[in-house]
Design a binder for these strands. Structure first.
Lengths: 259, 259
DNA sequence: ATATTTTTAATTGTAGGACAAATATACTAT
DNA sequence: ATAGTATATTTGTCCTACAATTAAAAATAT
């Protein structure tokens, strides 16, 4: 307890508000060509934007120390609450980190943190769900080049083990699908792509289960299996693999095209 | 000015804290198999998670009215500040909307809002930048199926106009690239894909300009032009288009593969 | 009873005060 | 110089207050 003497809390010491950056704050982003509802941004919105601009304009890099909250609040002529709400957002994105009493530092944002929190089938619009569905399809069809460029014997052995095991199964579960396709993305060496795909997958399943008639084209008996895909990846070319993947996903692609 | 009588501000009326949901709050997410720094979540982090869980578990849909901030703070036994910081995050993601004095409602989140704010080449790690670079490549290579399924005569006419105009140019600017490829994504009818791509593009350019040796393979003179792409899209097949796009992007793909 | 006006209540946005905890720094005693 | 102690710093959290404004309720007029 160091609460003796005439100690003035730090909070109180700064009282005079110098509205240095106030102009910055108050300058409306006036540039709407078409008349729109003029979505008046809240202070928090504006401070968030200003801070991000400030970081990029001043070329802040991960690890760089940031001014403290009081200083920001002063300079911007807003309350600490507003600054904290804005910072809270940036913290969520991984853009800034703050260890208590040590201040805040710039950090490497988490690319997909925001997207991850938002991929909720109940909240997204039909259009967005459809877009996500297709996006995943586009990814699956687009990875073959990378796959061929990056595949290693070890990866192929592991993939073979998976494909071989699944060959015996009458019907593949969702987990089986994830295992095989997940391994594929793993093999790209692209961690973001891998994570991105696995975030999209549940939405993809939801959309397919909810909106598309699975039985329609399932009579197409000559379906390309995971083992087929493996074989083409092992012995074929990138172009052949693309075709194989296209056929493997034919059911979904038909669904996507038809609407 | 209705400030007469013995009006007690709403803020003050609720004092007794019923820690009904306190358990929910205090239950640690204890499930780490490997020993990790035990990233103690802040109250705000926890409330953010709890709120999102609460929304999904109770199947909140866009338009649904949310409890007000006081109530949330009470129930969770935290201050309104903490609740507001958490809500501020969700507001940024478009997940909730709040019109002053009318309360908060669930909203349709903006799929890409979080990602958009974070795509800053100065802040992202080398690995992330490389991942984004490749991601864009994967998208370009993956859209051909959709393109063939969705192309319309009107779109093709517009694309032809662009390709025709660019045929005369000695060198294509960044804007030219955006115009042509942008139109391609536009033709997919997938708004999210379109926006996603245009968010990735600047990072893509940055990575290519900063890290890859452009001159290396540029001697490959038989480059596929935008007009070539157009022609294949018009007269060829999806498979041919994929090959054409692959060749069009060969410079980049070489870069990506080599590292 | 119905329409219009006035009052009240509710709720977000914003400001600002307080303080604990913990760390980095300055200071003091040995 | 070392160890120990006080001080300053800064985030996280809690609290109070109030303006603005709409929705609802009450009062008033038709």
């Amino acid at each position: 307890m160091y609460k003796k003497k005439n100690y003035i809390p730090f909070d109180r010491r700064i009282t005079a508000r110098k509205a240095i950056f106030a102009q910055k704050l108050n300058m409306a982003s006036a540039k709407s060509t078409t008349l729109e509802p003029l979505e008046s941004l809240s202070m928090t919105d504006r401070v968030e934007n200003i801070l991000r601009d400030y970081f990029t304009e001043n070329a802040f890099k991960p690890g760089d120390q940031l001014p403290n909250e009081f200083e920001m609040a002063q300079k911007l002529n807003v309350s600490r609450n507003v600054v904290r709400e804005a910072l809270s957002r940036l913290r969520m994105l991984g853009m800034v980190e703050s260890r208590p009493r040590r201040g805040m530092v710039m950090a490497q944002p988490d690319l997909l943190a925001g997207l991850e929190k938002v991929l909720n089938p109940l909240l997204l619009s039909q259009d967005d769900l459809k877009d996500v569905f297709e996006l995943r399809l586009v990814l699956e069809l687009g990875v073959s080049e990378i796959l061929f460029a990056r595949k290693t014997p070890e990866d192929m052995a592991e993939l073979e083990e998976i494909a071989e095991r699944q060959k015996g199964l009458a019907v593949l579960t969702k987990e089986d699908e994830i295992e095989f396709h997940g391994k594929l993305y793993d093999m790209t060496g692209n961690e973001t792509l891998h994570r991105f795909q696995s975030m999209l997958a549940p939405v993809f399943d939801h959309v397919f289960a909810a909106y598309y008639n699975k039985t329609s084209k399932s009579s197409k008996l000559e379906q390309v299996t995971h083992y087929d895909l493996f074989k083409v990846l092992k012995e074929g070319t990138a172009a052949q693999f693309r075709t194989a993947m296209y056929n493997h996903l034919a059911v979904y692609i038909d669904s996507a095209s038809s609407r």
